[in-house]
Design a protein around this nucleic acid. Sequence first.
DNA 1: AAAAAATGTAAAATATACTTGACATAAAAT
DNA 2: ATTTTATGTCAAGTATATTTTACATTTTTT
Lengths: 70, 70
Amino acid sequence: MRNRIQELRKKRKVTQSELAEAVDVTRQTIISLENGKYNASLILAHKIAQYFEMQIEEIFIFDQEGENIC
Amino acid sequence: MRNRIQELRKKRKVTQSELAEAVDVTRQTIISLENGKYNASLILAHKIAQYFEMQIEEIFIFDQEGENIC
DNA sequence: AAAAAATGTAAAATATACTTGACATAAAAT
DNA sequence: ATTTTATGTCAAGTATATTTTACATTTTTT
């Protein structure tokens, strides 16, 4: 699963700190999400989607149906 | 945050075990989600949404903007 | 009414999301 | 060129999601 956070954030010229504060998490969390360290929780995903005024599915991309790693 | 899993599941006459298997989690997880014990992860929310052929936001309801408990 | 299927509870274990703090480097501003 | 602002890394700690197992209760089927 990948996400378009960094892309959207830069497009709107918003800083990691600003986004972090807006959605009420640490800057560290934003960094980790942008760099694919882990996935956002549903609540955080929702807050981020609201911030960008988009649907969750437009920001978080769940490619190839079978999400298998094997 | 509440969800419509149980409602949708019953409407389609599908059992907890069946849904659990379909989205690849334990029956326990479905029970806990339906009974509001905790929130689904983003990936699970997505799998469930796909199962019901709906958008995540149509199934998981994030009421009153300020999600504050205080 | 008895058997079977579906739902629920509880607790311990593991996995993953998120925080905190301290420090390093890159980019932008003065 | 040097200060400031933005981005990144690392590690340890806390919180929350998910699994596993075993058992209890309710609902449905026969």
